[in-house]
């Protein structure tokens, strides 16, 4: 217990649809910090791509966030931002949502791994 309180843990942030955000926040990952900044973004039909992009960039810049969870269908909207993030921390995890099951062919990390194997290199 004492060890737990001594360690300053980093946050898991969520960019997702209503149910994903409600679920993970119920799980206890949500936080509003001293600057009144939440570590989650609920994306609905009214949320613009610009807003998602801006929020993703803000989460990447924040040093108190170590994992960013983003629904795969939302990640598709800001694919260029996710592709440009190559650092291991924060780790960007594309997760399935209620309406969109996980599609491995869309995952940035797996696509990068697939692209590495060039038949010429295997000679």
């Amino acid at each position: 217990m004492a060890i737990h309180s001594a360690i300053k843990g980093k946050l898991i942030s969520v960019i997702g649809d209503e149910d994903t955000c409600v679920g993970f926040l119920l799980g206890g990952v949500g936080e509003i910090n001293k600057n009144r900044q939440p570590n989650f973004l609920v994306v609905d039909k009214h949320t613009s791509v610009g807003e998602i992009e801006e929020c993703f960039k803000r989460f990447v810049k924040r040093d108190d966030i170590d994992i960013i969870l983003i629904n795969q269908n939302i990640a598709e909207m800001v694919r260029h931002c996710i592709e440009s993030h190559t650092q291991p921390i924060p780790a960007v995890l594309e997760i399935p949502s209620k309406d969109h099951p996980y599609d491995a062919s869309k995952d940035s990390i797996l696509r990068r791994a697939k692209g590495m194997f060039n038949p010429e290199d295997m000679k």
């Binding site: 843990g9 980093k10 946050l11 898991i12 955000c21 409600v22 926040l25 799980g27 206890g28 990952v29 949500g30 936080e31 509003i32 910090n33 001293k34 009144r36 900044q37 939440p38 570590n39 989650f40 609920v42 170590d66 994992i67």
Partner: peptide
């Protein structure tokens, strides 16, 4: 869900 106007609180689960 809490918004920017809500009182600050800490995450129950961190890494």
């Amino acid at each position: 869900l809490p918004t920017e106007d809500s009182a600050e609180f800490d995450a129950l689960t961190t890494v």
